[in-house]
Design a protein around this nucleic acid. Structure first.
Length: 264
DNA sequence: ATGGCCATCGCGGATGGA
């Protein structure tokens, strides 16, 4: 079973790349079973549902105009879909969750687009901290109900300096502050595992590169897209990789997919 | 020394991203 997350930075622009990537994955061996998308940047009435269904996927989506927007594509239907964090009032479309069946029981999937946070000391940073607290309180409850749980998406937070191309230059900068990393660590301490680090990775593995300064070619990036798995799923994880190929496309997203393979 | 890109909205240039 393969699960993936990808911040597409506009699904309107990137839909052909998403469909081509899904087809290539299937061609290469095993099809993606669940794909969480972030920054679809489209309202639900304009969401390309028919095109995605024609490609053999069910889809649940939750968007808004211009900003944010998330979706869950899945081979099997996602059940009990929930949008955003229950009890946390938010006018931004950032989270979509659903339950998918696997041969070893149901898996609760949470796809999330964490706030950017702009810079420490700003209102947006405070919003990010409130959002992270609310997410953690909710995920704690979700884990109690759904032992098999995956939390994946664009976290907009690095775990540590291994996730940063320039740790000195980015010291205590947005995505790299102690405060953000403390929140991420607290999330992990609920009983989640950073699936990428469960496996040997190439040095300087990143999931996002700035469009400017030829950052991708120079591998000046950040690892801010993560797949966290619950304790009950940990032993089923067989591999986790960052697929850099889509970042080489014409008109790429600035993020590239992260792919987790679970034993069936 | 600074900013250098891209998407959106909408038709110029501001805003947000990270």
């Amino acid at each position: 079973m393969k699960l993936a997350t990808w911040n597409v930075n506009s699904l309107t622009v990137r839909l052909p790349q998403v469909l081509a990537w899904l087809a290539a994955q299937a061609e290469a061996g095993a099809a993606i079973d669940v794909l969480a998308l972030q920054e679809t940047k489209t309202t639900d009435d304009k969401f390309p549902q028919a095109e995605i269904e024609a490609a053999g996927y069910q889809v649940a989506f939750f968007g808004q105009k211009t900003y944010n927007g998330v979706a869950l594509l899945s081979k099997a239907p996602a059940l009990d879909v929930v949008k955003n964090i229950p009890g946390f009032a938010d006018n931004m479309a950032r989270v979509i969750s659903g339950t998918v069946a696997s041969l070893n029981g149901n898996i609760r999937i949470i796809g999330a687009y964490f706030p950017n946070g702009q810079a420490p000391g700003t209102d947006k940073f405070e919003y990010k901290m409130s959002w992270l607290r609310a997410l953690r309180d909710w995920v704690r409850e979700e884990l109690a109900v759904h032992p098999q749980l995956v939390l994946m998406g664009d976290y907009n937070v690095t775990f540590d300096d291994l996730d940063v191309w320039d740790p000195v230059g980015m010291h205590e900068q947005i995505h790299c502050t102690t405060e953000e990393r403390t929140h991420l660590r607290a999330l992990v301490n609920l009983g989640l595992h950073d699936s990428l680090r469960m496996f040997e990775q190439p040095p300087k593995s990143y999931s996002w590169w700035d469009y400017r300064e030829m950052a991708f070619r120079r591998n000046r990036g950040l690892r801010i897209d993560h797949i966290l798995v619950s304790e009950a799923l940990k032993d089923r994880a067989q591999s986790c990789v960052i697929d850099k190929l889509p970042r080489k496309n014409e008109r790429p997203s600035d993020h590239t997919p992260v792919v987790l393979t679970l034993a069936d």
